[in-house]
């Protein structure tokens, strides 16, 4: 069954244009607060460990998602990690071509669960899965308690 009347004239069909205006401001949460303030104030990347499973989560979480224990003992995971995988972006968020390609990837840290997604300051032709990279932090006075306090990994 279909509509009994149907216009074949595409001009007759209207569209109504609009947007979804709203802005968002998020607190980083209990674990996020500790992670980002440590990054800002001490320049350290930290993970939270589960007292039962002994796993260290990065980014840190307030709880262990495997056994649901509250995480304790925050650990400095260092600044060096390994590129687990990467991609090279040639277009921006709206599909516009970029002047310079952007390299970004997932960086794993030794003896931790998870990792960080970030920009890699490595040339597209040089980047490799498995390569070692190091966090390059912004100067202390420019750090705001955000993931962008790390300028890049390279």
């Amino acid at each position: 069954m279909t509509f009994l009347e149907r216009s074949r004239d595409p001009e007759a069909h209207k569209h109504w244009y609009g947007d979804m205006e709203a802005s968002y401001l998020y607190s980083t949460g209990i674990a996020g607060e500790k992670f980002f303030s440590t990054l800002r104030d001490k320049g350290k990347i930290t993970g939270a460990s589960c007292p039962k499973c002994r796993k260290v989560f990065l980014p840190p979480r307030m709880y262990c998602e495997i056994c649901f224990s509250e995480t304790k003992n925050w650990k400095d995971v260092g600044k060096e990690g390994t590129v687990e995988t990467y991609s090279v972006g040639y277009v921006g968020i709206d599909g516009e071509p970029l002047d310079e390609p952007v390299v970004y990837g997932l960086i794993r840290f030794p003896r931790t669960e998870g990792g960080l997604v970030h920009v890699l300051s490595v040339k597209p032709e040089k980047v490799k899965i498995g390569m070692k990279v190091k966090a390059k932090l912004k100067p202390k006075k420019e750090r705001k308690g955000s993931i962008l306090d790390i300028a890049s990994f390279g």
């Binding site: 998020y26 607190s27 980083t28 949460g29 209990i30 996020g32 307030m62 495997i66 056994c67 649901f68």
Partner: peptide
């Protein structure tokens, strides 16, 4: 009106309470 916890942190807090009361664990 505003809690500092993220959504998932609030979930964990409430879930842990209910599991405790039931005498069960996530496992």
């Amino acid at each position: 009106r505003r809690l500092q916890e993220t959504g998932k942190e609030m979930c964990w807090e409430a879930a842990s309470m209910a599991l405790d009361q039931a005498g069960l664990t996530l496992k």
